[in-house]
Design a protein around this nucleic acid. Structure first.
Length: 551
RNA sequence: GCCCCCGUAGCUCAGUGGAUAGAGCAUCCCCCUCCUAAGGGGAGGGUCACACGUUCGAUUCGUGUCGGGGGCGCCA
């Protein structure tokens, strides 16, 4: 419909201003229904070049506008807007389209191209915290959005299992295995203090068997064998994280290990390439990368004076590996505290000089999460000690509410997770509000008892009420909302859309009865709410939130 | 000091180069002999932090100031 109107306008514009070869016609959906179904500011944008009153131009455009079977009327409004009012039959077309296509609203922008999304990527040093939860929710929704727009998505998790944090973890578990507590003077200064460290140590000493995603480790039971403790602790915590993610319904296709980049020689190879590129130099017994040549504000150390590489070197090796695996598009979803690494990784990739685009890879950074309960900030959990875990959230408010609240906010603004709100079973709580709309429709269709697929053929002409026209309008907006959310990498747009759609449905439900005597009216209304149910389902699916048939 | 994000109703937050800036909560009023009231209808509530600039038009774009958060390591 939008394309149709755009074409009409383009023709009209050509008639009015033949000298202007290509002008872009922009149609938008007015915020308020009284301004029609579509509107354009074309006359205003032309006012300048034509040196005419916008309203006069608008009148010329309307006069030149070809007739359309879909347009009921047009009007000139405000400073020179042209508003289009569609006839009800044109609006109702969307209902038939929806019911006729299970995948309605999705598109094929990606054309099956490969794309990788890396997210969560927590260190295996403890349970996932709420920040990881936000990353998991946002990252997974991004994947769903990109899949819905035709991309072939690989979900990937990167484990930093090779750095100082792991040494620290090993020491902490070892101390627990030897019976030390964090109060003990011999406890490492920056050791991990959460209860889970005790669990790991106990399991290790009890010679338990750990089945992690791709690894099987048995506790050696020897408190002096640091290497064995290390392998066991990492496997144990990876399994913990896997279980948390599974409970969150987030799954990965590929797990990459930092340690593997070393053992497979990829770090060394990357360093060699960088040296060969001429962008490195030795100074103060360290090896530096001239990242300032690529937009950084100072050069960065690659190899430390004491030997060993700084963290961004394996990061560059890792991203080179992604590139070589054929991902021309990569999106990294991370906490905003990582933002300084972006410049470094991109600089390293540019220094390689192998044709990686400057802005590659893309980043989506999410800001901090604060958890509130009973009006107070929640900062600790018994299990992890100093932070609230993802598991805590799921246990307290359930998976659906956790996913919804963590994804329903713009990633780049800070998020307050209100436990009491997420637990509320009223319309304070958008999750239940949306799910309830879905369940209500299911209930109505259930009571009707007819064949839902037959509704695709229903005569929709009885749909004339403002509630019905408004609901159809909202449904028609779903494809562009989806497209927009995918382009902007902004899953929260889906959450807001669903809330609005659910609101339209609830209003309609309260105003009109669907299962009425008049068969024609009944079928038309059932077709409309059936289409609404389908869009609600599709939208909730994008968020990874369930769509229950009853509540 | 430098870099990134944010500042919109009492609260939590959407939104946008254009038409009267929206939603939910909270406050007040109203609606179940009726398909799930986990719902709906209505009222009040705003200098879109502030200033300047660009523009026919700025809450939106730019610059600066002030607030809040995060990052600035030969840690990851």
């Amino acid at each position: 419909m939008k394309a149709h109107l755009t074409e009409l306008l383009a023709q009209a514009a050509k008639a009015v201003t033949p000298e202007l070869a290509d002008l872009s016609v922009v149609l938008e959906r007015p915020k308020s229904a009284e301004h029609g179904d579509f509107a354009t500011n074309l006359a205003m944008t032309l006012a300048r070049t034509l040196k005419q009153n916008p309203r006069a131009i608008a009148q010329s455009l309307i006069t030149a506008l070809p007739a359309s079977p879909y347009v009921a009327r047009t009007e000139i409004a405000g400073a020179g807007f042209i508003n289009f009012f569609l006839n009800p039959a044109a609006k109702a077309g969307v209902v038939r389209e929806i019911l006729g296509h299970a995948a309605w609203g999705r598109n094929n922008t990606g054309q099956g191209r490969k794309l990788q999304v890396e997210f969560v990527s927590a260190n295996p040093t403890g349970p996932l915290h709420v920040g990881h939860g936000r990353g998991a929710a946002v990252g997974d929704c991004l994947c769903r959005l990109l899949e819905a727009t035709g991309w072939q998505v690989t979900r990937e998790f990167y484990y930093n299992d090779a750095g100082a944090q792991i040494d620290n973890l090993t020491r902490s578990v070892q101390c627990r295995a030897k019976g030390l507590t964090p109060d003990d003077p011999a406890w490492p200064e920056d050791g991990y203090r959460g209860d889970y460290i005790t669990d790991v140590a106990k399991a290790y000493m009890a010679k338990e068997k750990i089945d992690a995603e791709d690894k099987h480790v048995i506790g050696a039971g020897d408190a002096d064998d640091a290497a064995a403790i290390r392998a066991f602790a990492v496997a144990y915590l990876r399994r913990e994280q896997d279980l948390d993610l599974r409970a969150f319904d987030v799954h990965f296709d590929v797990y990459s290990l930092e340690s593997a980049l070393y053992t497979e020689g990829k770090v060394e190879a990357t360093v060699k390439s960088l040296i060969a590129s001429g962008h490195t130099y030795e100074q103060d017994d360290a090896l530096w990368l001239r990242t300032t040549s690529f937009g950084d504000d100072k050069d960065r150390v690659m190899r430390k004076r004491e030997g060993g590489y700084t963290y961004f070197v394996p990061d560059v090796a890792y991203h080179l590996d992604k590139w070589q695996r054929g991902f021309s598009r990569v999106i990294n979803e991370q906490g905003a505290d990582h933002h300084s690494t972006i410049t470094r990784v991109r600089a390293g990739l540019q220094a390689l000089g192998i044709g990686i685009p400057q802005g590659w890879p893309d980043y989506v950074l999410h800001q901090m999460v604060t958890v509130m309960r009973g009006g107070e900030e929640m900062k600790i959990s018994k299990r992890a000690g100093s932070y609230v875990t993802l598991r805590d959230l799921i246990d307290m408010v359930g998976r659906d509410a956790t996913r919804y609240f963590l994804a329903a906010r713009r990633a780049d603004s800070q998020l307050v997770f209100d436990i009491d709100l997420a637990l509320a079973h009223t319309n304070d709580n958008p999750v239940y509000y949306i799910q309830y709309a879905h369940a209500r429709i299911c209930s109505v269709l259930e009571q009707w008892g007819g064949d839902v697929s037959s509704l695709a053929e229903a005569d929709l002409s009885p749909l004339q009420l403002p509630h019905e026209l408004g609901l159809m309008q909202r449904l028609a907006e779903f494809p562009e909302t989806l497209e927009n959310a995918a382009n902007e990498l902004a899953p929260h747009l889906i959450a807001y859309y669903l809330k609005d759609l659910a609101g339209d449905l609830h209003s309609y439900y309260n105003a009109e009865k669907f299962l009425v005597e008049d068969e024609a009216v009944k079928h038309a209304r059932l077709a409309l709410v059936g289409a609404t149910r389908q869009v609600l389902q599709g939208g909730l699916q994008l968020l990874g939130v369930s769509a229950p048939n009853e509540m």
